[in-house]
Nucleic acid binder design. Structure first.
Lengths: 214, 214
DNA sequence: TAGATTGTTAATCGATTAACAATC
DNA sequence: TAGATTGTTAATCGATTAACAATC
């Protein structure tokens, strides 16, 4: 681990990619890995990877590279995956339940404590074993569990009010799955998981492909 | 609409945001909207918005702005939302089914024709009314329907083989929900919907928040 | 030592922002 | 005309890439 520096968003977005690759390597792979090797494996520039790694770890040794295990630890620590973040989820629809039941989040240090829904019919135990409470319970729950992160999986038409409710109850970061822009004070981070964005990039590529085929 | 220019990925990623905001405006709002107004509403720089809009539309008029309806049309046409893209989905688990049943994709010109799963038990009709076929049927289906886009919602351990299978059957763009790096030829676009990336950004924010509170 | 790899310093590139002229 | 807004041209900024010195 290295002294924490100011790190750009673009670097931050590349780190999880390194991590998943490193973790996916077989047990019997060499214990060391170089920035060069990692770059080649992921189809990236080697200088960029080297610089990114230098930012989160000082375990790199000339001619040898990084000890894989330590590198994984350093990235995880840097990303805060080592200490879990508790979150609440609002909107126990299909997507909400899918997220609620997804085991993989643990790995990222995310722990969804409970879901909330305005529809009383959805209340009770989720199939994954997590509780679904009526929305009215959200304020007391957030406060007593000191929850800092909220996940929004309600329809766009209700996203803003849920967002406001979360903020009013102490939440500082919101992961928004509703395809809409949310208004919030500057100190609150809204991260909209924009499916539309990915789709836009894909659509453009396919259009270009088809055009080049003509 | 305007003559299509080469457009950067960053612009492309902002366009859907404008679109959703414009569409969310009430019926009785003024028929014209200026880049300035749009920028303010979304908390962005007005010059940036103006430049982005100029890229996709030439309907802007000094002192007046853009006709909202036309602007929506122009952005949609630019993003290819006006002609639908057919897609297949592989992996009819929770997330796969959530996507399969999501109505909102229509709006983006995405039409998921069918899902495929290696597990015979999942085969049949999805609750949303879309068919789930055994994975063996994928090749013939892709070819007969000339599908160009594939969606991967299988576990990471099987993502690469599904990816290879899709490419072998003519798919040119892949929307990957498995948290793993996929290897593909340069002319194939892999768009990984990286939840980990969003989480990383959120975690960092929360860490910083907590530290500033000490 | 020689060579592979590291980290660093400088150059390039691209995107954003600022300044301005054009238009209704 | 005056003022708001547009589109464009130039300046700034930040991130990426290239070149190089340091290290084992």
């Amino acid at each position: 681990m290295v002294e924490r520096k100011e790190v750009s968003k673009s670097v931050l977005k590349r780190l999880p990619g390194y991590l998943t690759y490193l973790k996916s390597m077989p047990e019997d792979a060499p214990v060391h890995i170089s920035a060069t090797a990692l770059a080649n494996a992921l189809g990236m520039g080697e200088v960029q990877v080297r610089k990114d790694l230098a930012l989160v770890s000082d375990g790199g040794r000339p001619k040898i590279g990084y000890l894989r295990e330590s590198l994984i630890d350093d990235i995880e620590q840097f990303l805060g995956y080592d200490n879990t973040t508790d979150a609440v989820l609002v909107g126990a629809g299909k997507l909400g339940c899918a997220l609620l039941g997804y085991q993989g989040f643990e790995e990222y240090g995310l722990n969804i404590l409970a879901a909330f829904d305005a529809d009383a019919a959805k209340t009770g135990m989720d199939e994954s074993g997590k509780p679904v409470y009526p929305l009215e319970k959200l304020p007391s729950f957030c406060k007593s569990h000191k929850v800092l992160m909220g996940i929004i999986t309600v329809p766009s038409s209700h996203a803003q009010e849920v967002c406001d409710l979360m903020i009013a109850n102490g939440i500082k970061g919101i992961w928004n799955f509703a395809p809409t822009h949310l208004e919030a004070p500057a100190n609150i981070l809204i991260q909209t998981q924009n499916m539309a964005t990915s789709l836009a990039v894909l659509s453009m590529h396919l259009q270009a492909q088809m055009k080049s085929k003509d």
